[in-house]
Structures are given as structure tokens and as C-alpha cells.
């Protein structure tokens, strides 16, 4: 599996820091860093792998969402938080009203040009490790709002981990997005401490669901008739 490596190096003197675009940091695609480790020393490599898995297991099963909503999609997101859909099954029910206590942020709704600096500020206030789910067509790409006041996709300035399509996505789709994020977190390699080893963040490049499921989807030839309930 390929990984995306992100390095944010605060020591690196950047003469042009002011004009640097968000998301800040250097990104490159690299092979799985663990494999290299294992080749160098089986023992250390395995130990590190076990440590990573333990930490990741903890992280992915206690994701605390940030209570942040922009528009219509937020309604479906809150629906996922209530009894009929019960997000607590996935360990993500502890909604935080402060970005400082949250693990991930769902951009649920349209990202407006007037709102973009505010979103950026809130994102910065979240502590690492942090993730972003982009929920709905508006947040993914601007959706049906190709209009002067709307940013055409929140990934113009935020690093997005999971895109959930739909306008709005059903609560079930949001829950699936959450599970995909969990899968991805399970494979991540982050620095185990600020003094141990490589300080880069390695995120797995997960396969596209659209391609994975295409086979299965095109098998469907008979759709249910809308004339009957």
C-alpha cells in the first residue's frame, strides 16, 4: 500500500511563509514505511508495528467529533448522532463543543468564502492527531453551488481524509464514511513521541470505494419500481 507522507517542519526557515498556501506542509507519496523498518531489523520493526497498532486501535475506536455544522448536511449528521442511527456503536458519540477537545471535524455543509477563514482557524485549534471528513457534495466540490460566494470544495485549504458523496448523504452514508476513516486510522504511522524516530505523518492511500464496488454495482439490473411502496 502506498502512503502519503506529510511533514510540517516548524524549524525550516521559510522566507515566504506569509504566502504559503493552506494546507501547510510538504506532501509526498512513499511506500509503506514499516516494510523498510522490518528489513532493517526484524525485532525493532515488529515492536514498532505492535506499538503502532495498539495506539491506532485506541485512536480509531474513540473518535470524538467536533460539533460543527454549516448547512443542510449537518441535519443528516445530527440524525446519525441520535437514537435511530446511534453513532455510539462506533465509539464516536462524545460530541465536543470545543475544537481543542475534538479528534475530527466533519465539514457538513457548504463552505462559504466568508466562512473559510473561520473554518481554517477552528481546524488549527484542534490538536494533533486530527482528521477531516468532508460530508456532502458542497464540501466535496461545491456541489450544485457553483456560485460567487462558495468555495468549490473544502479541500482547497483543508487536508481531507474521507469524502462522503450525496446531497445530503444519508446518515448511513455518514456512518460508512466514519468507518472508512477508522480503517484508515488503523493503518496510519504517526510519530510515537516527539523524541522517537521519524516525525513525519504517514497516511495510507486508501482505495476508492467507487472502484472497489463497481463490479458489484453493475450487476444490479432490476431496480425496484417506484409505483409500489
Amino acid at each position: 500500500m502506498q502512503y502519503k507522507l506529510t511533514r510540517v517542519n516548524p524549524d525550516r526557515a521559510n522566507p515566504d511563509a506569509d504566502n504559503e498556501r493552506y494546507p501547510i506542509g510538504e506532501r509526498q507519496t512513499v511506500p509503506d514505511p514499516m516494510e523498510e523498518q522490518v528489513h532493517r531489523s526484524i525485532y525493532m520493526g515488529k515492536l514498532e508495528e505492535v506499538l503502532h497498532s495498539a495506539v491506532n486501535w485506541g485512536r480509531k475506536n474513540s473518535l470524538w467529533p467536533y460539533n460543527f455544522g454549516l448547512s443542510c448536511c449537518y441535519v443528516e449528521m445530527t440524525t446519525a448522532f441520535t437514537a435511530p442511527h446511534d453513532i455510539a456503536r462506533f465509539g464516536a458519540e462524545v460530541i465536543r463543543a470545543s475544537p481543542r477537545q475534538a479528534d475530527f471535524m466533519v465539514i457538513a455543509g457548504t463552505c462559504f468564502i466568508k466562512m473559510a477563514p473561520v473554518i481554517q482557524r477552528l481546524y488549527e485549534q484542534m490538536l494533533e492527531p486530527k482528521w477531516v471528513i468532508s460530508m456532502g457534495s458542497c464540501a466535496n466540490s461545491g456541489g450544485m453551488y457553483d456560485i460567487y460566494s462558495v468555495v468549490q470544495g473544502v479541500d482547497k485549504f483543508l487536508p481531507v481524509d474521507v469524502y462522503v458523496p450525496g446531497c445530503p448523504p444519508r446518515p448511513e452514508a455518514f456512518l460508512q464514511g466514519l468507518q472508512l476513516l477508522q480503517d484508515s486510522i488503523g493503518k496510519e504511522r504517526r510519530p510515537l513521541s516527539w523524541v522517537v524516530g521519524d516525525q513525519g505523518v504517514y497516511r495510507p492511500e486508501m482505495p476508492s470505494q467507487k472502484e472497489l464496488r463497481r463490479e458489484e454495482r453493475i450487476q444490479v439490473t432490476n431496480l425496484r419500481s417506484p409505483d409500489e411502496l
Binding site: G142, D146, Y148, V150
Partner: peptide, 16 residues
């Protein structure tokens, strides 16, 4: 009317 008739949106530290 369209956002795509303008330059794509970007956010720099200075603009922020």
C-alpha cells in the same frame, strides 16, 4: 455568477 468564472479559491497565511 459562477465561482468557476473567477480564479480558484486559495487561502494563504497572509490572507487568513
Amino acid at each position: 455568477a459562477r465561482a468557476t468564472e473567477f480564479d480558484p479559491f486559495s487561502l494563504t497565511a497572509a490572507k487568513q
